[in-house]
Design a protein around this nucleic acid. Structure first.
Lengths: 339, 339
DNA sequence: TATTGGCACTCAGGGAGTAAGAGTGCTAAC
DNA sequence: GTTAGCACTCTTACTCCCTGAGTGCCAATA
C-alpha cells in the first residue's frame, strides 16, 4: 500500500509533467511543491512509485514520467474539478442562444469543446431513443425511387432515399403514405418496426413489399444501436501536441477519421449519469490510440442518455479541466435537446 | 523569352523534385534525363530560369527548387495527364454501385479522392441550382416551432426548424402547408422566394408572417450562393507530408477546419467545363495556405456545375495525377447526381 | 553564338569529441 | 523515517572538422 504522501508525489508528478512536458525530478519537485521534506525523501517515494508501476524513468538519469497506470490512479482519485473560467462560461452562453437546427447545435458544440480543451472533440449524433413519431412522409423521386422522411417529436428528421426496383403510381404512394402516417403517428420509434409489419400483412403483397423496402433501411439508421454518425473537430490540436505521441500521429489521425472505429470504442465505454468515463493510453486496445486518452460522457434527456460526447488527446493532458469541459458541454446539450 | 530546352529543364526539375523531395542539381539532372548536353549547359539554363523567377536555390550550394511561378508555368503547359490505373478505375466502379443517399455518395467520393491523391480532399455539397420543388411539408414541433421541409426533384432535402414566436394551431399549419405546396410544387427553386411573397400578400397578415418566417431562412440555405456545407477527408495525409510545409502545418489545419474560408476560396475559383482550376502557393491569399496548392473543378448536371470538388496539398505535389483524379471523381459525381 | 571542360569557392550535413547539467541510488549519520 | 553527501550515469548542446554536392565563371572550342 502506498502512503498518502507518495500519492501526493504522484499527483505532483502528473501535474508538473502535464504542464512542463518534461520528465520531473526530485529536486524540481520540492522546489515547486511544499512537501516539507528533502529531495532524498522524495526520491525514496519515487522508487516506491516506480516499483508499483505508476511512474517510469525514460532513462537512467532523467526525471520520472507517469505511466498509464499512474494517470489512471491520478484520475480515479481526482476529486476537485477545475471550474470553467468566466470567459468560457460566456462562450457557452452565447452558444446557447438562437440555435435550433440539430446540425448547427452539434457543430457549434463540438467546436466549442475542442476550443475549451485544446483537444480533438467529438460528438455522436443523438439517437431517437424513446422519441415518438410525429409524422411520416413518402415522396416519389424520379421513376422508381422514393424518399421516406420520418420526423420525431424531438425535432430530429431521418430520411432515406430508396430504389424500389419497379415504378409506382404517385397516388398509390400517397395512399401508402396516409396509411403509414396514421398508423405510426405517435408511436414510439422502438415500435415502428413491428407496426410496419402489422400494417404490411393487411396490404396487397406488392404494397407490402414496397412498404418494407422503404421502412426497413430507415429503421436501421434510426435503431438506437446504430447511431452511426459522429462529428469531429479540432484535429489541428493533435498536430500541436504531436510531440506527446511518438511521431505516431498519422495512425492516430487515420483512426480518428475512421468514425466507425471510434463509434465502436465509445459505445463500449459506459457513461452513467454525468460521470465522465475514460480510457487511458494502452487501456485502449485500438491500434493508433495507444498513446492517447479518450474521455466521454453521455448526454440526452433526464431519464436516459442518447449519445456520447467527448475528447481525444495525448495521455499527457489536463484531465481535470477536460473532464469539467466535457461535463459542461454535455449538460448544455442535454438541456438544449431535451426541450 | 525562355527557350524550349529551358522549359524542358524546368519540367525535369519539377518532376524530380516532386518525386525525390530534394533540391535537384545540374549533374543529377543530366543523369536522369537524356538532354544530350553537358551539365554546364544545364547550369546556364538554370541561371536563366532563376532570373525569370521560376526556380530558386535554397542556399548557395544546393540544387534548385521550383518556385510557385515555376509550378504555375509547369501546370499551364501540362498537356498529358496521367491515366488512372486499373486498380483505381476498379475502386471507382465499386463506388459507383448501390449508393443512393447523398451524404453517402459524397462521403465515399471524398474519401476515395483523398486516397487516390494522398492529399486532403474536399467536396462542396451540391446546390439545388436549377432544380424544381417536388414537395413542401410543414410539421409542427412543440408549441411554437415548426419544421419546413423542401424536397427538390434531384432528391435533395432541405429542412429548417424555426421558432415562430407564437403558437399556431395544427390545422392552421396544415392549411398553410397545402397552400404552399400547391403553389410551389414544380416551381424552380430560384422562383420560390417570389412565389412565397405573392402567396403571402393574399393571406391574413398573421399567416403571411408565419409563412415568411418559415420560408425565408430555408431559402437562405437553399440559395445557390450559399452552398455552405463542405465535406473534407484525408487530413492525415497532410501530416504525412508535413515536411513540405515549413512546420506551418497547424495553421493550415486550422484553415482547413474553417470551412467558411475554404468555401469562399473555392467559390472564387472558376471551373468552366471540366477544367481543373488551381491556386498555387502564394497565389492563395489566405493565411496558412501560402505553401499549399488548391485544385478544384466543378461537378453537376451537363448544363451547369452546381458545386466544386478538389484537393489541398503541398505545392510540391504530383499535379498531373491529382488533376486526373479530381476530374474522374467529378465526372462520376455528375453522372451519379444527374440521374 | 552556343556549348563545354575545368577550377575555385561555398555551404549544409554528418560524425566525433567534450563539457555541463540533471537526476539517480546508495550509504551512513541524525 | 529522514537527510546530507557522494559517485555514477546519461542526455543534451556545442564545437570543430571534413566531405560532397553544387554553383558561377572563364577560357577554349565547334
Amino acid at each position: 500500500m502506498i502512503s498518502e504522501r507518495s500519492f501526493e508525489v504522484l499527483r505532483a508528478i502528473v501535474q508538473d509533467y502535464v504542464s512542463t512536458r518534461e520528465p520531473v525530478g526530485s529536486k524540481a519537485l520540492i522546489e515547486r511543491h511544499a512537501f516539507g521534506v528533502s529531495s532524498a525523501t522524495i526520491r525514496n517515494d519515487m522508487a516506491l512509485l516506480e516499483e508499483e508501476g505508476l511512474i517510469h524513468a525514460p532513462h537512467t538519469s532523467a526525471g520520472r514520467v507517469p505511466t498509464d497506470l499512474g494517470y489512471r490512479l491520478f484520475v480515479d482519485r481526482l476529486n476537485e474539478l477545475k471550474q470553467l473560467s468566466a470567459a468560457e462560461r460566456q462562450a457557452m452562453e452565447t452558444l446557447l442562444t438562437d440555435t435550433v437546427d440539430l446540425d448547427e447545435i452539434l457543430g457549434r458544440s463540438v467546436r466549442l469543446l475542442s476550443r475549451l480543451t485544446n483537444q480533438v472533440a467529438m460528438i455522436q449524433y443523438p439517437t431517437l431513443g424513446g422519441a415518438r413519431v410525429r409524422s411520416v412522409e413518402l415522396v416519389s423521386v424520379g421513376d422508381s425511387r422514393a424518399i421516406i422522411i420520418l420526423v420525431s417529436d424531438n425535432g430530429r428528421i431521418q430520411q432515406h432515399v430508396q430504389d424500389l426496383g419497379s415504378s409506382i403510381e404517385p397516388d398509390e404512394l400517397a395512399k401508402l403514405r396516409n396509411l403509414l402516417d396514421s398508423k405510426l403517428r405517435g408511436a414510439a420509434l422502438a415500435d415502428v418496426s413491428k407496426l410496419t409489419v402489422d400494417l404490411g400483412s393487411s396490404l396487397s403483397p406488392e404494397h407490402s413489399r414496397v412498404l418494407t423496402a422503404l421502412v426497413l433501411p430507415l429503421l436501421e439508421l434510426v435503431d438506437s444501436n446504430r447511431q452511426d454518425k459522429l462529428m469531429v473537430a479540432g484535429t489541428a490540436n493533435l498536430v500541436r501536441s504531436e510531440g506527446d505521441f511518438g511521431g505516431n500521429i498519422t495512425s492516430l489521425l487515420d483512426a480518428i477519421e475512421e468514425h466507425v472505429v471510434l463509434l465502436r470504442l465509445i459505445s463500449d465505454m459506459e457513461a452513467d449519469g454525468d460521470a465522465v468515463s475514460l480510457r487511458i493510453g494502452s487501456e485502449n486496445q485500438i491500434e493508433g490510440l495507444s498513446s492517447a486518452s479518450v474521455l466521454v460522457t453521455g448526454y440526452g434527456s433526464q431519464t436516459q442518455n442518447v449519445a456520447k460526447v467527448g475528447v481525444i488527446g495525448p495521455t499527457r493532458m489536463d484531465y481535470s479541466s477536460n473532464i469539467a469541459a466535457i461535463r459542461a458541454i454535455a449538460r448544455y446539450l442535454s438541456k438544449s435537446l431535451g426541450a
